[in-house]
Design a protein around this nucleic acid. Structure first.
Length: 267
DNA sequence: AAGTAGGGCAACCGCTTCAAT
DNA sequence: AATTGAAGCGGTTGCCCTACT
């Protein structure tokens, strides 16, 4: 029945990794590639469980990791993605090349959460704290023209109908993820409608084809490896206003490229 | 200079999903 | 079809470092 046991837990090290262990793991993966974490520790001569090896590699040893401080653009992108995806750190990490889910999670908990709170934004719901009535359409805008050190811009939505349409479009895309992710209800227990979330989105129907956007399925969950937005300039892929030399086509090459839910694949 | 508090981050834990048997 | 375990994920913990008193 079932598979054979993973590792002998009685003879595994725990705690901080030593330089030697790092070297062994790195050398082994460089020689044999990732995968089969179950057998890796033994093969690499490590007294660790496969799970621990995987974590160490993904979060610390991988050569494509960026490390260092998060840029302002990354900050905003994380906030934006979190507002849409909730605590789906692996999905968020998938949009930030060189960043790991663990890193983003830590960064969120230590920096961004506080930052949002100081801006008067609830980091969980992304709504304004002290907004007395839920129906008020206070929204968070990331328009860089209005951006300053104080961060997000609040405004009342001038066109509720437009906002509702956008919300419905988002809801359509998010829905199938959402069904399996009650967290995305943000505690409301109702289908996501983003009634007060205006991210200046422009989302087209899924069937839309754009030569600039690679529509083939994205490699599934490469554990934090950036599934870069193909065919888009930096500004567009980061969800920023288009730069003067941007040649991305209008669809999705806007501030919304990252919201191409076709490439946010859930397990 | 020593002690303390708080922040940051690496690693572990426990749960869920999926695949192998 | 049922069972079992690997892989992956999010939450939490604990250690280390730095700033403050």
């Amino acid at each position: 029945m079932g598979r054979s046991p993973c590792c002998e837990k009685a003879h595994t090290n725990k705690g901080a990794w030593t330089k030697e262990e790092d070297d062994r793991l790195t050398a082994y993966i460089k020689a044999h590639g990732e995968g089969c974490w179950r057998s890796l520790p033994k093969a690499a001569g490590l007294l660790r469980c496969g799970k621990s090896c995987r974590l160490r590699w993904i979060n610390y040893l991988r050569p494509d990791l960026k490390r260092g401080n998060f840029s302002h653009e990354e900050d905003e992108l994380i906030i934006k993605l979190h507002s849409l995806l909730g605590n789906k750190w692996s999905l968020i990490a998938g949009r930030l090349p060189g960043r790991t889910d663990n890193e983003i999670k830590n960064y969120w908990n230590t920096h961004i959460r506080r930052k949002l709170t100081s801006r008067g934004i609830d980091p969980v719901t992304h709504r304004a704290i002290n907004s007395d009535h839920a129906a008020s359409n206070i929204t968070i805008s990331f328009e860089s023209a209005q951006r300053d050190d104080k961060g997000a811009v609040f405004r009342r939505d001038a066109e509720p109908a437009k906002a509702a349409a956008a919300a419905a479009a988002i809801s359509h895309h998010v829905d199938h993820h959402h069904r399996s992710n009650p967290q995305l209800d943000w505690g409301q227990g109702k289908p996501l409608k983003c009634p007060d979330l205006n991210l200046d989105l422009c989302i087209s129907p899924p069937i839309h084809e754009d030569p600039m956007v690679d529509t083939k399925p994205v490699v599934k969950r490469e554990a934090g490896v950036g599934v870069g937005v193909v065919g888009l300039c930096f500004s567009c892929s980061m969800g920023l206003p288009r730069s003067s030399d941007c040649k991305c086509s209008s669809f999705m090459g806007l501030r919304t490229a990252m919201l191409d839910f076709r490439s946010i694949e859930m397990k």
